[in-house]
Amino acid sequence: MPAPSRILVPVDFSEGSLGLIHYALQLARPFNAELELIHVWEPPQYVAPDLLVAAPGWNSLSLEQVAVEAATKELNDLVAKVKEAPSPLKHRVVVGEAASTVLRVAEEGKYDLIVMGTHGRRGLPRLLLGSVAQKIVARAHCPVLTVHLYDTAK
């Protein structure tokens, strides 16, 4: 198997996201691999993403616009915390169902490795919420490295 040259790192802004980014950077460095972070904003299934959000004195924006702007700010803030990153560290927010969007981005971008976190849910929460990581591992066109995310504050 050839060494990775393009690594995709999906982040969900959970407590372990910064640690995941540092891990992916350490993995990429010896191979001089390009690394890109993505966050997938998944529209709620029970609300139309084009629903307008308005407050007095503001321009009306769609729910999707508000959410993507907030996610972009949060992703920019997360990237700013990464000190040893190559500059600039590529990152973007993408809209869609999490697993299928990560798979599409990975294939279209010709990434040869996906490094992503898992939360270790078991039992009923996993059954009800599903596992994005599990879906990606099962369907990805390239290897997937899953890293168990944990709360670094504990």
Rank of each mutant, 00 (worst) to 15 (best):
V94H: 07
D50L: 09
N32T: 06
T146P: 02
E84S: 14
L89Y: 00
D77E: 15
R122A: 14
D77W: 10
L63T: 13
K81M: 14
V68W: 01
P125L: 03
N76Y: 01
L113F: 12
S17I: 09
A48G: 06
A138L: 12
V11I: 13
S14D: 06
Q65W: 02
A153K: 14
V53K: 01
E69S: 10
E74W: 07
V82D: 09
L35W: 08
E74I: 05
T146C: 07
P10T: 14
A99L: 01
T152Y: 12
S5C: 09
V144N: 06
L124I: 14
K135T: 15
T146F: 08
Q134H: 11
M1I: 11
D112Q: 04
H141G: 07
Y46S: 05
N32L: 09
A140C: 09
A28R: 12
A67P: 02
L145N: 12
K81E: 15
P125I: 05
D151P: 00
A140Q: 08
V132C: 04
L61A: 14
R139D: 12
I21T: 03
R6W: 06
R139N: 15
G57H: 01
V40G: 10
V105P: 08
E64T: 09
K110T: 00
D112S: 07
A48T: 12
S131C: 02
T118W: 12
P86L: 00
L18G: 01
P2K: 14
A153P: 00
G130K: 00
V95E: 08
H22T: 10
A85N: 04
K90Q: 11
L27S: 05
L61V: 14
L149C: 13
G19K: 02
E107H: 15
E84Q: 13
N76S: 11
K73M: 01
V82I: 13
H148K: 13
A55S: 14
L127E: 12
S60F: 08
Q26F: 05
Q45L: 13
H22Y: 14
E42Y: 02
F31H: 15
A24W: 04
Y111P: 07
T118G: 06
R6K: 15
L149R: 08
V147P: 05
Q65P: 00
I38Y: 06
W41C: 07
L51Y: 13
A28M: 08
L129G: 11
E36A: 14
P44T: 04
T72M: 12
V102N: 02
Y111C: 02
L61D: 08
A133K: 10
A33N: 03
E84V: 09
V66S: 07
V82T: 03
A85P: 01
W41K: 01
E64V: 01
A138W: 04
A28E: 04
P143V: 07
W58D: 13
L129D: 04
E15C: 02
V147L: 09
P125M: 11
L145Y: 12
W41N: 05
A28S: 14
V144E: 06
P43I: 07
L37P: 12
A24C: 04
L127Y: 15
H119D: 13
E84N: 15
A24L: 06
G123C: 01
V9T: 09
S62G: 03
V95W: 10
G117K: 03
P44I: 00
S62I: 04
P2N: 12
G130V: 01
E97R: 15
I21N: 03
I114V: 15
H148A: 03
I21D: 02
V9N: 07
R104V: 06
